[in-house]
Structures are given as structure tokens and as C-alpha cells.
Nucleic acid binder design. Structure first.
Length: 779
DNA sequence: GTCAATGATATTTTT
DNA sequence: TATCATTGAC
């Protein structure tokens, strides 16, 4: 490896990269060069001969991160190794588990061509289950049940291991059992199952476990703070043979607790792996001092931290700009005005990000940007493989690979409409249930007229499979679009042009998949076989035609006196492509408008950086979100979110909040976020008259900048004189209460002695107060 | 069996 | 305010 790569590192980075081969935990703050450390570490291990490429496993959470690591590594390693990056196991948890299960599907108890359910598929599978079992979906909402099942799996719990302490939970456990049974019958696997299944594979099969434990002497994990219980156990199992685990993460940036992430894993890792080497990367190369100090000040309010303080040598930079607006529209106007000024001064639009807590907030911003002709791009919409037309096409493809895939079957049995309505489908379901078989298999057993119409559909499936034999993948997709009449169906729809374009894009995607990386990457490798023969047996299979499902006899291979069934022949390109489609839903949006302002939630901004960041909606109830205020953990996670948001900014940060905001078609009155209060005053520059602290306990004194209750921004329209007068108080008015502190009047009723007002006290919640009793003074 | 209207419902998101 | 899902009418 090029030694200059090491020269570029700072002291701590260098130390981390060149750590001995034992367990290590790298606490990498935002912008501290985490990815660089991770990739350089791998390059260093390989080029110093400590390990061969096949001994490396690197796990990430997103495909994007995996790809980036792969690319960077390719550039770092000298030619002789570059080719072998392919034999490294670099990928997402799910991608790697998929690889493992494909290679050992038999031992994992799966059909060779098992399909992967994405969350939408999973939800419809659950709905279908509830229907066949005649379960009241009012009592057991499918979404809630899905969450229940997934969180059990995320913790590594099979139904019998779940603690059921009441009837309700017992019933849910029972449904969990049935759900798993259904999946097994259909030969499909959901995301969580991918992990759990491969965990169990390793745990129950000593030969396989020993093989991989021996193979991977170095396991590197990115974003370790986001691992869930099961992922941690999976890693622990794999590393059980003495592999050196190199975990990189930042507990302050853990923002996925709601989907099972356990920060506790960091502490457990430290303890269970007897980690002596904790290295803190605290030098931030991204943000200016004021921004960093603000972030530090906010996160300091969290307890339960591993501890870390970012610093920079970039200088203080500009103060953080704070803006208070009367309503959300005005806030958006302000943002747009600033953007105009910024771009006029030469700031690139793509270097400006508008961040918000929840997606609903993007609308006002979009509207304002749009009417001012400023190009923008919103992240987080529907992704390519999630579009309905694409999902329909994929369902047909899945039926070619496996006609017993009931999820795919129900998706397209009547799409495009072919006269198989709810009634017929019900009969089909019944027949399938009675015979304990797939819908496909049940069709011939279905009585009456329903059986007839369904038979036609079966013929279509068979016809598809027949027509596709021997074709290349893109040709198959093409065939399917024609024979299923999907294309003609959308052609006759008024808004169908975009959809057809997407279907064409699917053909493209298939072609690319074959031509480029995809296919070779996800190829199951002849793992077990390889260890006894050539060291690098992950030979890409370039066979692009559908092999008519060959039930290859599994050769028995002897490893250290243990007989393990070797992976069978590669499944066909179609199945691999389908797995790819589930695992990698595709880029958020195709149009990469380069010069556009970037809009996204704080969550999706993680890992990104921008010269200028606007963070809006800093209001109690919104950020921190009201749903997360119930427990302390929720609030701390919100604070980490705030931390992530702040640290996205390189040079300039705007924080804004609004007294009034439209939410779900109703006007809400809010007080400013406690997180804003947590930023030291001397880092701020108020662009609107400032009302100092709120009555949050420790802040004793109240002061105000202007007598105007609303401190309306100078430019503003809107709330001028007091309307709805109630003894000097009005809706939207900020008030102070001796016990509850600062609040905003949200609504009022009654008059005279009966007059009551509803006040939003933020942290203290919403209260109805009688004016004759409560002492409310204008703030 | 299909279509239109109504009504509930509403963080955050990757795989 | 929008979306979605389910209901009710043809």
C-alpha cells in the first residue's frame, strides 16, 4: 500500500489503522474521518500481509456505504490486490446473510431459490395471513403485528422464546408462529429472517460455523451504534474463533432506536470482547468551531454517553443564525430569501441543505422554492424498486422463479384486471388453506367458475416460464412486460407514461445488473469448497441465461472430518436479480439534478455534509417530536438527532422556528425547542428580535425584546393587532405561568368568569386554565 | 366486479 | 392537508 495513505492520517487515526489484531472500538465523532480509517485499516492489513483479502469481512448498513468502501479500497490497494477486493466480504448485514444463505440453503432449510420479502411484501403477507386465519384485523392491526414480529426477530427471538405475559401477546406469538410457517411454505424470507436464519445456521451447524470463523480473521463493522441485538450476536458468533473485531461507531449519532438499534451493544462489546483499545477520533475536519461547539453543548445534556468532545482547528467561523417566524410560510420565505442571497454570492445550490424533522415539513419549503424558481431536490420519496408498476413486474418475475410465491401471486392475480375478483380469490384462498398448499397449487382444486378463471391465470404463468427459457435476463423482463400485458395496460392509462418509462428502466436495470457489478457480487460463492481447494473460489458466474432449475446433487465435501453439504450450483440470474431488487431498493430518485438545493429529513442527512445547512421547525412537539417525549430514551434520541443535524454543516448553520404552523390541516401554536435553549447564547446571532429564555425551571428571569407579544419579524405580514381579545390575551399569545413556565395560547372558550384558555406549555404539556384562577402574564 | 366517495389517520427508515 | 384504505353504490 501506498505509504502516503498513512501520512495523511492524524495521530489517532493512524493509531486506529495500525492497531494490533485484537478487538478494538473506534469512537468516531461526526466528520472525523471514519470511513477513511475503516478503509485504510483494511488496506493496511492486506498490504502488510497480515491477512489475505478473503480473510476480511466488512459490514455496513447501507448499500451505498458498502459500495463506497469497495471503491475507495480499490483505489488504495496496489494492482496485485485490487482484483481480489471481490473476494472480500464487504456488504450490508442483509447482503452478507443473503450470500451465506444462498451458499448453504439446504442447511438453512430453505429452497434454493428462496425469495426476499421487502417490508411492503411482508405487510401484505401478514394481511393475507390474518385473512386466512379469520383474525380480526381491528384487534390485531397488521402494521402493529409486523412490528411485533420484526422486533422479536431483531432480538433473535423465535416465537417460543418470546415472553407472553397476557392473552393479547400470546395471540400475537401464535400469529408469529403462523406467519413463519406461511413464509416457510412459500419459500420466502423477510429482512429480519435473513439475519435470524443465518445466525441459526451458524449456530446449529458446527462445520459451517468453524469454516467461517476460520476464514474471517478480521471483521470490521461500520456504524456499530446502529446494530441491533441480533446483529450483535451474529457478529459475536462469527468472531468467536478469535477474529479481530474492529468496530467503528458514534454513540452520539445513534438515531435508529425505533427500529431496534441498541446503543448498549457498544458497552457490551467493550465488556464481552475485553476491549482494551478504545480510540476516540475527536478531531472534526468538517465544521467550523461555533457549529461544533453548539453540537457539543447540545449533546452534553444526554446522560449515558461514552463521552467524546469534538474539536476543530478550522477556527470559530460564523455565528449560528437564528430566526423566529410567525408562521411556517414566513419561515419558508425567509429560507428562500437567504438561499437567493447565498447563491448570488456564489454558493453552490447543491451545497445548501434544508433539513427537517418530519417529511410533512417539506411541503411548505417546496412550495416556496418552486414559486421562486429555485431548483431543488427532495430525498426520501418512493424508490425505484418500490414503485407499483415495478413491483408488479417483479411479481411476475418472481412467479417464474417460484410459482408458489403467494405474495407475488396475489399481487398480480388480478392485475392488470382479468376478472378475478375478491370472491374468486377468497375461494382460492379457502382451497389453499384446506389443502395446505400454495395458491398456485390450489387453483386446480378450486371449484366452480372461480376455478376456471384462475386456470387462465395459471396458464399465463406457465406460459411466461416457458417463453423465458433460454433467454437472457433483460429479454426475460421484456417478455414478461409483453405477455403479462402490463405494458399495454399502462399504455392505455392516462398517467401511464411515467410508469412505462419505469418499466423500460427495469429492463435497463436488468441489463446493467448482468453487465456490471451486481450479478457477480451477490453470487453465492463456493465457500466451503473453496477452503479445501483454491483460496479464491468466489469466481463470478457470468452465465446469464436461465438454467432450468437444476436440482444438482449436492456433493459431500470433507472438511476436518466433518461432512458438510457443499453449496450447490449457482441459482439462475433471475433469482439473483430478484434478491438484488429486494435488498437494494435503488436510488431515491433518478434525476440527479446537480445544481439543486437539497431537502431531506435529519435522518437521511446522516453521513452527509453541506456548506450551508438550514434546520427548521425547532419547536417543542415537532423537534423534539411529541411522540418521543414519553420516555427519557426517546428524548435523548431526539437530542442525538439534533446533534446529527447540527454537525452536517461545514460553514454556516441556520436554526429557525415558528410560532405557528399548519400541521395536518390544523394550525398549531408552539413554543421554541428546548434544544435551541441548549445552544449557548454567545454562539448565536439572532436575525429576529430575541426573546430570551423560557421558564424552564432553571431559567428564572424573563425578559423580552419587544412589547409586541409575538415579536413579529420586521418583514412580516400576518399577526398584527390583538384579535380574539381576552383580557389582553389572544390565540397564539405567549404567556408565562408561575408553575408551568412559558407557553402559548392555543385556543379559548367561554367568556367573562368562565373564560378558559388552552395553553401549550411544551415540556409540561397542554393545559386548560381558567382565566379567573390562573395567573397568566404576557411573555 | 369495478369505481367513486367517504373517513380515519398522520415521526423518523434501511434492508 | 394529503394519502390511503375501506366502504357503499352501480
Amino acid at each position: 500500500m501506498n505509504n502516503r495513505l498513512l501520512d495523511k492520517l492524524n495521530q489517532e487515526q493512524l493509531q486506529a489503522v495500525t492497531l494490533p489484531s485484537v478487538a478494538a472500538l473506534i469512537l468516531a465523532g461526526a466528520g472525523s474521518g471514519k470511513t477513511r480509517v475503516l478503509t485504510t485499516r483494511i488496506a493496511w492489513l492486506i498490504s502488510t500481509g497480515q491477512v489475505g483479502p478473503q480473510g476480511i469481512m466488512a459490514v455496513t448498513f447501507t448499500n451505498k456505504a458498502a459500495k463506497e468502501m469497495q471503491t475507495r479500497l480499490g483505489a488504495m490497494l496496489p494492482m496485485e490486490f485490487e482484483r481480489s477486493t471481490r473476494s472480500m466480504w464487504i456488504g450490508t448485514f442483509h447482503g452478507l446473510c443473503n450470500r451465506l444463505l444462498r451458499a448453504h440453503y439446504k442447511d438453512a432449510g430453505l429452497p434454493q431459490l428462496f425469495q426476499i420479502l421487502d417490508s411492503a411484501d411482508q405487510l401484505s403477507a401478514i394481511k393475507r395471513l390474518l385473512k386466512t386465519l379469520n383474525v380480526d384485523d381491528e384487534k390485531f392491526p397488521p402494521r402493529e403485528l409486523m412490528y411485533f414480529i420484526n422486533s422479536a426477530k431483531d432480538q433473535g427471538l423465535r416465537p417460543h422464546e418470546v415472553d407472553a405475559w397476557d392473552d393479547f401477546t400470546r395471540k400475537r406469538v401464535e400469529l408469529y408462529t403462523e406467519y413463519d410457517r406461511q413464509c416457510q411454505r412459500e419459500g420466502v424470507v423477510d429482512f429480519a429472517e435473513l439475519l435470524l436464519r443465518s445466525y441459526e445456521l451458524l449456530q446449529n451447524n458446527e462445520a459451517i460455523r468453524a469454516h467461517y470463523q476460520r476464514r474471517f480473521s478480521h471483521i470490521l463493522v461500520d456504524e456499530f451504534q446502529d446494530t441491533n441485538r441480533l446483529q450483535y450476536r451474529w457478529l459475536k458468533l462469527l468472531a468467536g474463533g478469535g477474529a479481530a473485531m474492529f468496530a467503528v461507531g458514534d454513540d452520539d449519532q445513534s438515531i435508529y432506536r425505533f427500529r431496534g438499534a441498541e446503543i448498549g451493544n457498544m458497552r457490551d462489546f467493550e465488556r464481552e470482547f475485553k476491549v482494551d483499545n478504545i480510540i476516540r477520533l475527536e478531531q472534526n475536519y468538517r465544521s467550523q468551531g461555533n457549529i461544533l461547539n453548539a453540537a457539543n453543548a447540545v449533546i452534553k445534556n444526554n446522560t449515558e454517553r461514552l463521552g467524546k468532545n469534538l474539536w476543530t482547528d478550522r477556527g470559530e467561523g460564523e455565528p449560528i443564525r437564528v430566526y423566529e417566524s410567525s408562521d411556517d410560510i414566513e419561515e419558508a420565505r425567509f429560507v428562500v430569501d437567504e438561499i437567493r442571497a447565498l447563491t448570488q454570492d456564489g454558493t453552490s445550490r447543491s451545497q445548501i441543505a434544508l433539513l427537517y424533522r418530519s417529511n410533512a415539513q417539506s411541503r411548505v419549503l417546496e412550495h416556496q422554492l418552486f414559486s421562486n424558481g429555485i431548483p431543488y431536490r427532495v430525498y426520501g420519496g418512493l424508490r425505484f424498486f418500490e414503485r407499483q408498476e415495478v413491483k408488479h413486474a417483479l411479481a411476475y418475475l418472481r412467479l417464474i422463479a417460484n410459482p408458489h410465491d403467494d405474495t407475488a401471486f396475489t399481487r398480480v392475480i388480478n392485475f392488470p384486471p382479468r376478472g378475478i375478483g375478491a370472491r374468486s380469490q377468497e375461494q382460492l384462498q379457502d382451497a389453499a388453506k384446506a389443502n395446505q398448499c400454495s395458491l398456485y397449487a390450489a387453483a386446480p382444486l378450486t371449484p366452480g367458475k372461480a376455478g376456471q378463471t384462475v386456470a387462465n391465470f395459471l396458464r399465463l404463468i406457465d406460459q411466461l416460464r416457458f417463453a423465458c427459457e433460454g433467454l437472457t435476463l433483460p429479454e426475460i423482463v421484456e417478455q414478461v412486460l409483453e405477455l403479462s400485458t402490463l405494458r399495454t395496460h399502462y399504455a392505455s392509462e392516462k398517467e401511464g407514461q411515467d410508469r412505462i418509462a419505469n418499466l423500460d428502466e427495469l429492463i435497463n436495470a436488468a441489463a446493467n445488473f448482468i453487465a456490471e457489478e451486481g450479478y457477480t457480487q451477490d453470487m453465492p460463492s463456493s465457500e466451503v469448497a473453496s477452503s479445501t481447494n483454491t483460496p479464491d473460489a468466489d469466481t463470478p458466474n457470468t452465465n446469464t441465461t436461465i438454467a432450468s432449475t437444476t436440482t444438482a446433487t449436492t456433493p459431500q465435501i470433507d472438511i476436518n472430518d466433518v461432512t458438510v453439504s457443499a453449496p450447490t450450483s449457482a441459482p439462475d440470474a433471475l433469482s439473483t436479480f430478484l434478491a438484488h431488487a429486494s435488498l437494494e431498493a435503488g436510488e431515491h430518485q433518478a434525476e440527479q439534478n446537480q445544481e439543486a438545493v437539497q431537502l431531506m429529513t435529519v435522518h437521511s442527512a446522516k453521513g452527509l455534509e453541506f456548506d450551508v445547512v438550514f434546520l427548521g421547525g425547532l419547536e417543542e412537539g415537532l423537534f423534539p417530536h411529541e411522540n418521543s417525549l414519553n420516555d427519557k430514551g426517546g428524548l435523548e434520541e431526539e437530542r442525538r438527532l439534533m446533534y446529527v443535524a447540527i454537525t452536517r454543516a461545514r460553514d454556516r448553520l441556520y436554526l429557525s422556528f415558528s410560532q405557528q404552523r399548519m400541521l395536518h390541516g390544523q394550525t398549531r401554536y408552539n413554543i421554541r425547542s428546548r434544544f435551541l435553549e441548549e445552544v449557548p447564547e454567545d454562539l448565536l446571532k439572532w436575525l429576529t428580535p430575541q426573546r430570551k429564555s423560557y421558564g424552564f425551571g432553571e431559567f428564572g428571569s424573563f425578559s423580552r425584546a419587544s412589547n409586541a407579544p409575538n415579536a413579529a419579524p420586521p418583514s412580516s405580514f400576518g399577526s398584527s393587532g390583538p384579535r380574539n381579545s381576552l383580557g389582553g390575551l389572544r390565540i397564539g399569545q405567549s404567556v408565562v405561568h408561575a408553575r408551568f413556565g412559558q407557553g402559548v395560547i392555543v385556543s379559548a372558550e367561554g367568556s367573562g368568569n368562565d373564560a378558559r384558555v388552552q395553553v401549550n406549555f411544551g415540556r409540561e404539556g397542554m393545559k386548560w386554565l381558567a382565566l379567573s384562577v390562573a395567573k397568566l402574564t404576557p411573555a
